[in-house]
Design a protein around this nucleic acid. Structure first.
Lengths: 385, 385
DNA sequence: CCTAACGCTGACATCGTTGTCAACGGGGCA
DNA sequence: TGCCCCGTTGACAACGATGTCAGCGTTAGG
C-alpha cells in the first residue's frame, strides 16, 4: 500500500493521486442471454441478476422467487432454501421500483426532504431525526438543499415527485406553494418544516418563532437595554417575519419606540451579518443589545463584535442554537430550537398520513427554550465610547 | 391564522398542536377508469396521471407524449403544444423509474451517499459538495448515516442497491467491503470517502491522515512539548489507525519514547472524549499537549480542559476543523481537512466512471492544512501543578 | 371410494415507460 | 407519373417485478 508524504503546509486544493491496481476491467454491457446457461453465466458476471435469473438457477418459476424474496407464505421449506441459495450465489438484490410499479400500495419507501442547506447544523439535526424515523420503517431519504431559492424549491419537489417519493418534508421559500395542490389532492403527504405553507393547507411543524423572539427581546430589556437592534433573514420568509414581529411587539409592550429601532433584514450568511453589524456600529447611536434571528447571522454578529472589541459590552441573544456556543466568552445566549424534535415530528406526521390518518391538517408548534450563557445577560451601562 | 403564545420557559418536548381547516378529504384510491372520459376525469382528481392520460387528453398516442416529454425530435410544433398543454393541465410528472426500467442506459439519476452522520459538520460539508455536483447533472442524492455500525453500512448499501442508484459514495466501517465485489464487477461506480476500502479495489478520496497527524504532532513538539497524549476514534477504523501512526511515528522521529505516551482510543463522541480527558488528568504525569484525532473528540477535550481550568496551559491540536474554532479562547489549532473538496472529488469520480472512464482505481489524497489559532501554540512550561 | 379442501406452484396479464418498427402522407426528383 | 425519402405518428413488445388464477398432488372428511 503506497504511503504518501505531503508537503507540510500544502495548499488546499492540491491533491495527490495514486493509481492502484486494475479494477472494473469489465465494460458495462446489458445482457441478452436467453438460454438457461447463458442466463446463469451472464448473471454471475456482467449484468445485474433479475428474478428470472434466480428462478432459472433455482429451477422454479419467477413467482415463487417473488414469494420467497417477499416472505410470502405457502412455499415449501426446501424451495425456500433453493431460492435463497440461488439468490445469494447471484448476489441478487430485488428492484424495488420494478416491484413498486405493479404492487398494490404503490409505495417506493422513499421520502423527499428539502432543507435550507444540508450543511447547516439546524438542517443536519432535522435530517438526522427524519432519517432515524425513516430507517425504522425501511424508508430511504432523498435530501436536497434549498439555498433560499424558489426555483430550486420547485425543481427539488419536481425531482422528488418524478422519483415517486411517498411523502415530502419541505422547507420552502417561494411565495406560495399552490403548485403542490394537485399533489396534495392525490393524497401525497406533505409536511412543512421551519416554514409555514402559503396557498395550500397541509401539516406543518415549526418553532414558536414569535414567542421565542419575544422571550429573547424581553430578556434583553430586563437587563436594562433600551436600544435593541434586530438582525435577521430575508423579509419575505415568513419565519423571519414572525421573529421580527415577536421582537417589535415586545419592544412596544415595553414602551420602546419601535420606529427607530435598528432593523436589518436580508441577511443570509455569516459575512453579510458581519458587515451589517459593523455598519450598525459605525452609525450614530449604536445598539447596546442585539437580537439575531438566525444561526448564521448570530455567528456573523459575534465575529463583528469581536473585531470591534464590543463583545463584552454588547448584549446578544440569538435565535437558534450555535455550535459550541457554550464555550465562547461570553457564552452565547440563545433561544434554542429543537431541530431534532421538529424532524421527528415531521416524519411522524408523514408516516401517520401514509398509515391512513385523514384528519385535518395540523400545525405543530415546537417550543423554544432560552439558554442563558452570558452574552444575553450583559447589563446595559453608560456607553463605553 | 391562529397565534399561539407559549409558556416563556417551556419544557422542550412539549408541543402545541393547532388543527387547521380540512384538507386532503379525498381518500387514496387507485384508478380503474378505462373509457376516455373516465381516464380524463380521473386523472384530474384522485389518481396520478400517466402518459396514457396525457395522450388521451391530447388526442395522440403515448409514444408521442413520450417523445415530447423527453424532447425527442420529429414531433410537429402543433403536437408538442397540445401535449404540453395536456400535461400541464393534468399536472403530469413522468415516472422516472418506470422509464428507467425500459430505457437503454438504465440510469436512475440517483446517487447513494453514506456518511458518519448527516448531523456531523464534516459529513454535512461532504454531502453539500456531492449534492452540488449531482444537481448539475440532474441527479438526486440518497443520504444515510453510518453511526460506525457495520450492519448499518451493509443495510444502507443494500437499500441503495435495491433502489438502483447509479453510484455509491461510501464512508465505511466494516472490516471488509468484499460484499461489494459483485456490484463492482457489474460496473457500479463506488467511491470511498474518508475511509479506505478493504477487500476490494475501487476509487477512494481521503485526507492525508498520516501526514496531517504528523504535522500536528511536530507542531506540538516544536513548542517544547515532550509529553503528548493521543485521543482518537475506534482503533478498527483505518483512518484512525493512520492518524495514530502519524502521531507515534512523529514522536519516534523526535526521539520521544512512544511506549509510555498516553494513547486513548475508542472515543466516538464528545462525552466519551471528555471523560477520557478528565481521566488523563487524574492519573500521574498528565500530558502537557494533546492531539485529538477527530472533530467530536476535539470538542470533548476542550470541554474537559475548561472544566479542569487547564485550557490555557495544555496545548491542543485537533484533526478536522471545529465550528467556531477561531472564536474560542484560546482559538483551536487544527489540522483542517477539506470536506468540500473530498465530496466534490468523490462525486466527480463517480460521474467520470459513469461517463465511461475505465482507468484503474485511483486513490485521491486531499491535503490537510494546519491552522494555528492559539491552542496549539501554547508553550510547554514547568508543570502548573 | 369419492370429493372437497388445502398447500404449493407457475403461466399470464399488468404496472408506466421507452425502443423498435411499420404505416402514412407529402414533397422532390427522375 | 412514379419512386423514394423523410417527417410524423402510433401499435406493440419489453423492462423487472407482483396480483390473479388455475392446476397439480396430497390429505381430510363423508
Amino acid at each position: 500500500m503506497p504511503v504518501c508524504i505531503v508537503n507540510p503546509t500544502p495548499h488546499i486544493g492540491d491533491r495527490i493521486v495514486t493509481p492502484l491496481s486494475d479494477a472494473n476491467p469489465t465494460p458495462p454491457e446489458r445482457a441478452a442471454g436467453r438460454t438457461d446457461e447463458a442466463l446463469s453465466a451472464d448473471a454471475r458476471t456482467r449484468s445485474r441478476p433479475t428474478m428470472r435469473h434466480v428462478a432459472t438457477l433455482a429451477g422454479v418459476g419467477v413467482k415463487t422467487v417473488s414469494r420467497v424474496i417477499n416472505g410470502e407464505p405457502n412455499v415449501s421449506a426446501a424451495t425456500i432454501e433453493r431460492v435463497l441459495k440461488a439468490a445469494r450465489s447471484l448476489d441478487y438484490e430485488p428492484d424495488l421500483h420494478a416491484g413498486n410499479l405493479r404492487r398494490a400500495d404503490g409505495r417506493t419507501r422513499t421520502l423527499g426532504l428539502l432543507v435550507g442547506s444540508v450543511d447547516n447544523p439546524f438542517a443536519g439535526a432535522v435530517h438526522r431525526a427524519v432519517e432515524d424515523a425513516a430507517l425504522a420503517r425501511g424508508v430511504a431519504v432523498f435530501a436536497s438543499s434549498l439555498d433560499d431559492d424558489p426555483e430550486r424549491e420547485q425543481a427539488a419537489v419536481s425531482a422528488f415527485l418524478r422519483r415517486r417519493v411517498d411523502g415530502l418534508i419541505l422547507t420552502t421559500v417561494s411565495e406560495d406553494q399552490a403548485y403542490l395542490a394537485p399533489e396534495l389532492r392525490r393524497g401525497t403527504p406533505v409536511v412543512f418544516v421551519d416554514r409555514q405553507p402559503a396557498g395550500v393547507t397541509s401539516d406543518s411543524v415549526v418553532s414558536d418563532n414569535t414567542a421565542g423572539a419575544a422571550v429573547a427581546t424581553r430578556h434583553l430589556i430586563a437587563h436594562g437595554h433600551r436600544r435593541l437592534a434586530y438582525l435577521g433573514d430575508r423579509h419575505d420568509i415568513r419565519t423571519a417575519q414572525e421573529r421580527r414581529r415577536g421582537f417589535l411587539d415586545e419592544l412596544g409592550r415595553a414602551g420602546i419606540a419601535t420606529g427607530d429601532a435598528p432593523v436589518v433584514e436580508g441577511l443570509h450568511d455569516e459575512e453579510t451579518a458581519r458587515q451589517a453589524t459593523l455598519a450598525l456600529f459605525e452609525a450614530d447611536d449604536p445598539p447596546t443589545a442585539i437580537f439575531s434571528a438566525q444561526n448564521l447571522v448570530t455567528i456573523g454578529v459575534i465575529r463583528a463584535l469581536r473585531e470591534l472589541g464590543r463583545h463584552l459590552d454588547t448584549a446578544l441573544v440569538g435565535f437558534d442554537d450555535v455550535p459550541l456556543g457554550d464555550l465562547l466568552v461570553p457564552g452565547v445566549t440563545v433561544v434554542a430550537q429543537d431541530p431534532h424534535a421538529i424532524g421527528r415530528i415531521a416524519a411522524e406526521r408523514v408516516f401517520a398520513r401514509l398509515d391512513g390518518d385523514e384528519s385535518s391538517a395540523r400545525r405543530t408548534i415546537v417550543p423554544t427554550r432560552l439558554i442563558e450563557r452570558g452574552s444575553g445577560e450583559l447589563p446595559h451601562r453608560a456607553s463605553a465610547r
